[in-house]
Deep mutational scan, measured.
Amino acid sequence: MATGGRRGAAAAPLLVAVAALLLGAAGHLYPGEVCPGMDIRNNLTRLHELENCSVIEGHLQILLMFKTRPEDFRDLSFPKLIMITDYLLLFRVYGLESLKDLFPNLTVIRGSRLFFNYALVIFEMVHLKELGLYNLMNITRGSVRIEKNNELCYLATIDWSRILDSVEDNYIVLNKDDNEECGDICPGTAKGKTNCPATVINGQFVERCWTHSHCQKVCPTICKSHGCTAEGLCCHSECLGNCSQPDDPTKCVACRNFYLDGRCVETCPPPYYHFQDWRCVNFSFCQDLHHKCKNSRRQGCHQYVIHNNKCIPECPSGYTMNSSNLLCTPCLGPCPKVCHLLEGEKTIDSVTSAQELRGCTVINGSLIINIRGGNNLAAELEANLGLIEEISGYLKIRRSYALVSLSFFRKLRLIRGETLEIGNYSFYALDNQNLRQLWDWSKHNLTITQGKLFFHYNPKLCLSEIHKMEEVSGTKGRQERNDIALKTNGDQASCENELLKFSYIRTSFDKI
């Protein structure tokens, strides 16, 4: 039985969820670079991206490699990797027998973001014989899940209580170790020597080791999670996991709180800001991140802002960003909400898709409305799209047979046209069989910064309504002859009103 693990408890099935942008060198404390989270699957090609990484700022997932063999891993080693800020997950990587050479110096898994409450997941690794993470000293947050690894031993010899604050939620089941077939031998045991430290858990006094050649490092209890030197002297209180010299914040392997210019500090002093819960960055760093993602459509890219001495992905609820200094300031009234469309555009074809934009005031991208039916549609669209004030790209209304009016965009005031449909149009209306009105132009103002209007096959939309939009939106004169079809717009509506004058002759039985 794995020490510190839980057996036999019912657990939810383990679901495996399925960018080499360097964020800056980590400095003297770390020998390499800070790398983003990685999802490495199918083959070993991307694994080489770990070569210079000291910190993975995010998670590391290595999974679904069915053609790899043990010899493929023999020359692979990433000794610079010290810390993973989120979680480490391995799933069905064939041929991998140990992690001792792959990650010989991995010391800390912070667990800032977890995989279903777990910071370390080893699942269905069919050839893994031992973990071998002999320098792993601290899992700051989260638990361990090690399950269905039929060859995995050296679990009962690990004292997880020396690595985690609590072992109650560890789930370590259905491994070879369960069948008591392992016969784990710690260093020196074969020669009758006791080389590794022994600890007591559940009444068992057991030597602690990761492999037959690597003991588990056990520091004096007084050192807590700070770690200790090879001689057993406690590291500085700002260290986490390990250090090369005692009581020196510049000799830590990793930091308990924050890293700044080669030393570990309790908090980031001005003019620095907390970033990702582990390091200090200056304003320029946060500003660069903001600008890199301002026009990016890459998933996970955030326009970072500053709030409460932190550089964070977005302002919290009730705050909006001051564009001059990136500071989050309290909103006066309802907060603006910028919604970034991942692929640059979004099609609204149902109430469900409209709900995804609920509360958005600025759309960074283009909207395509293609709704053919739905219950209580006008009210639903207004509830979900009615706060949109600005669209950076274009607005396209296409084959939306259920629409009679666009009044559900009740606050839309600006279409920038930074991206144009077919390279020309910022407003595009095609084949809307029941569209009769755009907006009530006596109450609604709309500016279209650039781009043209396109109207074709809107049989109940009168040309007068379209011409009014040209005047109000500032697009009059931009359109070419064929942009607004004269014969297919309003051709099934009563669009022309003329005053009919009647004269009559009164007659009676005795007068003409």
Rank of each mutant, 00 (worst) to 15 (best):
His28Asn: 14
Leu29Met: 15
Leu29Trp: 08
Leu29Phe: 08
Pro31Arg: 02
Pro31Ile: 05
Gly32Asp: 14
Glu33Leu: 08
Glu33His: 11
Val34Ile: 05
Pro36Gln: 14
Pro36Phe: 12
Gly37Phe: 03
Met38Tyr: 11
Asp39Asn: 11
Asp39Leu: 06
Arg41Phe: 14
Asn43Pro: 02
Leu44Arg: 09
Thr45Lys: 10
Thr45Gln: 03
Leu47Glu: 01
His48Ile: 04
His48Cys: 05
His48Phe: 07
Leu50Cys: 03
Leu50Ser: 01
Glu51Lys: 00
Ser54Ala: 10
Glu57Val: 08
Gly58Ser: 00
His59Gly: 11
Ile62Gly: 00
Ile62His: 01
Leu63Gln: 15
Leu63Lys: 12
Leu63Gly: 06
Leu63Cys: 08
Leu63Phe: 04
Leu64Lys: 08
Leu64Val: 06
Leu64Asp: 08
Lys67Asp: 06
Lys67Tyr: 13
Thr68Tyr: 15
Arg69Asp: 01
Pro70Val: 14
Glu71Ser: 09
Asp72Cys: 08
Arg74Asp: 05
Asp75Glu: 11
Leu76Phe: 12
Phe78Ile: 03
Pro79Ala: 09
Leu81Met: 05
Ile82Gln: 03
Met83Thr: 04
Met83Asn: 00
Ile84Glu: 00
Ile84Ala: 00
Thr85Arg: 08
Thr85His: 03
Leu89Ser: 02
Leu89Lys: 02
Leu90Ile: 08
Leu90Phe: 14
Arg92His: 14
Val93Thr: 09
Tyr94Ile: 14
Gly95Ala: 13
Glu97Tyr: 11
Glu97Asp: 09
Glu97Thr: 07
Ser98Ile: 01
Ser98His: 03
Leu99Tyr: 02
Leu99Phe: 09
Leu99Lys: 00
Leu102Val: 12
Phe103Val: 02
Phe103Asn: 00
Pro104Arg: 02
Asn105Phe: 05
Asn105Pro: 00
Asn105Trp: 01
Thr107Phe: 03
Val108Tyr: 03
Val108Leu: 10
Val108Ser: 10
Val108Asn: 10
Arg110Cys: 10
Arg110Leu: 08
Arg110Asp: 00
Ser112Gly: 11
Ser112Val: 08
Ser112Met: 11
Arg113Cys: 09
Leu114Trp: 05
Phe115His: 00
Phe116Asn: 10
Phe116Val: 00
Asn117Ile: 01
Ala119Met: 00
Ala119Asp: 00
Ala119Phe: 00
Ala119Leu: 00
Leu120Ser: 01
Leu120Glu: 00
Leu120Val: 04
Ile122Gly: 01
Phe123Asn: 12
Glu124Tyr: 12
Met125Tyr: 00
Val126Leu: 14
His127Phe: 04
His127Val: 07
Lys129Leu: 08
Glu130His: 06
Glu130Ile: 10
Leu133Met: 03
Tyr134Arg: 04
Tyr134Trp: 14
Leu136Asp: 00
Leu136His: 01
Met137His: 10
Ile139Trp: 00
Thr140Lys: 11
Arg141His: 08
Arg141Val: 12
Gly142Trp: 00
Gly142Val: 01
Gly142Lys: 00
Gly142Tyr: 04
Ser143Pro: 12
Ser143Phe: 07
Val144Leu: 07
Val144Cys: 04
Ile146Thr: 01
Ile146Asp: 00
Ile146Lys: 00
Glu147Val: 13
Glu147Arg: 01
Asn149Pro: 00
Glu151Ile: 03
Leu152Met: 04
Leu152Arg: 00
Cys153His: 02
Cys153Leu: 02
Tyr154Ala: 14
Leu155Gly: 05
Leu155Ile: 13
Ala156Tyr: 03
Thr157Leu: 08
Thr157Ile: 04
Thr157Tyr: 07
Asp159Cys: 02
Asp159Ile: 13
Trp160Pro: 00
Trp160Ala: 01
Ser161Arg: 06
Arg162Ser: 08
Ile163Asp: 00
Asp165Thr: 06
Asp165Pro: 13
Val167Arg: 13
Glu168Tyr: 15
Asp169Ser: 10
Asp169Trp: 06
Asn170Phe: 11
Asn170Trp: 06
Asn170Thr: 09
Tyr171Ile: 11
Val173Ser: 14
Leu174Pro: 10
Leu174Cys: 14
Leu174His: 13
Asn175Pro: 09
Asn175Val: 03
Lys176Glu: 13
Asp177Gly: 12
Asp178Cys: 08
Asp178Leu: 12
Glu180Asn: 10
Glu180Asp: 07
Cys182Thr: 02
Cys182Ser: 08
Cys182Met: 05
Gly183Cys: 09
Gly183Trp: 05
Asp184Gly: 13
Ile185Ser: 04
Ile185Phe: 15
Cys186Ala: 07
Thr189Leu: 12
Thr189Phe: 13
Ala190Trp: 10
Ala190Asn: 07
Ala190Thr: 12
Asn195Arg: 08
Asn195Cys: 04
Ala198Arg: 13
Ala198His: 15
Thr199His: 12
Val200Cys: 02
Gly203Ile: 06
Gln204Trp: 08
Val206Thr: 12
Glu207Ser: 06
Arg208Pro: 09
Cys209Met: 02
Cys209Ala: 03
Trp210Met: 01
Trp210Phe: 12
Trp210Ser: 08
Thr211Asn: 09
His212Ala: 14
Ser213Asp: 06
Ser213Tyr: 02
Cys215Met: 04
Gln216Trp: 10
Gln216Met: 11
Gln216Phe: 07
Lys217His: 04
Lys217Tyr: 09
Val218Met: 05
Val218Phe: 04
Val218Tyr: 13
Cys219Tyr: 03
Cys219His: 04
Pro220Val: 03
Pro220Leu: 10
Ile222Val: 15
Ile222Gly: 10
Ser225Pro: 10
Ser225Thr: 11
Ser225Arg: 09
Ser225Tyr: 06
Ser225Val: 07
Ser225Trp: 11
His226Met: 14
Gly227Val: 05
Gly227Ser: 14
Cys228Lys: 07
Cys228Phe: 02
Cys228Pro: 03
Cys228Leu: 02
Thr229Ile: 08
Thr229Val: 07
Thr229Pro: 07
Ala230Ile: 14
Gly232Gln: 08
Leu233Lys: 13
Cys234Glu: 02
Ser237Asn: 13
Ser237Thr: 09
Ser237Arg: 10
Glu238His: 10
Cys239Met: 00
Cys239His: 00
Cys239Arg: 00
Leu240His: 14
Leu240Trp: 00
Gly241Tyr: 04
Asn242Pro: 09
Asn242Arg: 12
Cys243Gln: 01
Cys243His: 00
Gln245His: 10
Pro246Tyr: 05
Asp247Glu: 09
Asp247Val: 06
Asp247Trp: 03
Asp247His: 05
Asp248Val: 03
Pro249His: 03
Pro249Glu: 08
Thr250Lys: 03
Thr250Val: 06
Lys251Arg: 12
Lys251Ser: 07
Cys252Lys: 01
Cys255Leu: 00
Cys255Asn: 01
Arg256Thr: 08
Arg256His: 05
Asn257Gln: 07
Asn257Pro: 00
Asn257Ile: 01
Asn257Ser: 12
Phe258Lys: 15
Phe258Glu: 02
Phe258Met: 07
Tyr259Met: 08
Tyr259Ile: 12
Leu260Trp: 05
Asp261Thr: 05
Asp261Leu: 05
Gly262Arg: 06
Gly262Ala: 04
Gly262Thr: 06
Arg263Val: 03
Arg263Glu: 02
Val265His: 01
Cys268Glu: 00
Cys268Ser: 00
Pro269Val: 09
Pro270Asp: 03
Pro270Asn: 14
Tyr272Trp: 10
Tyr273Val: 03
Tyr273Glu: 00
Tyr273Arg: 05
Phe275Met: 13
Phe275Pro: 01
Phe275Asp: 01
Gln276Thr: 13
Asp277Glu: 11
Asp277Ser: 12
Trp278Val: 05
Arg279Thr: 07
Arg279Lys: 04
Cys280Gly: 00
Cys280Pro: 05
Cys280Met: 00
Phe285Met: 08
Gln287His: 15
Gln287Leu: 04
Leu289Pro: 02
Leu289His: 14
Leu289Trp: 06
Asn295Trp: 14
Ser296Pro: 08
Arg297Met: 09
Arg297Ala: 10
Gln299Pro: 08
Gln299Asp: 09
Gly300Ala: 08
Gly300Tyr: 07
Gln303His: 13
Tyr304Ile: 05
Tyr304Asn: 02
Val305Phe: 10
Val305His: 09
Val305Thr: 06
Ile306Met: 04
Ile306Ser: 03
His307Pro: 01
His307Glu: 09
His307Gln: 05
Asn308Trp: 08
Asn308Thr: 06
Asn309Lys: 09
Lys310Ala: 09
Lys310Asn: 08
Cys311Val: 06
Cys311Ile: 03
Cys311Arg: 00
Cys311Lys: 04
Ile312Met: 05
Pro313Leu: 10
Glu314Arg: 14
Cys315Ser: 00
Pro316Tyr: 04
Pro316Met: 09
Ser317Pro: 06
Ser317Lys: 13
Ser317Trp: 04
Thr320Phe: 09
Met321Val: 14
Ser323Asp: 15
Ser324Lys: 11
Asn325Tyr: 09
Leu326Phe: 06
Leu327Ile: 12
Cys328Thr: 01
Cys328Gly: 01
Cys328Leu: 01
Thr329Trp: 12
Thr329Gly: 12
Cys331Glu: 02
Leu332Tyr: 01
Leu332Ile: 11
Leu332Trp: 08
Gly333Thr: 03
Gly333Asn: 06
Gly333Lys: 09
Pro334Ser: 11
Cys335Val: 04
Pro336Glu: 10
Pro336Trp: 13
Pro336Ile: 08
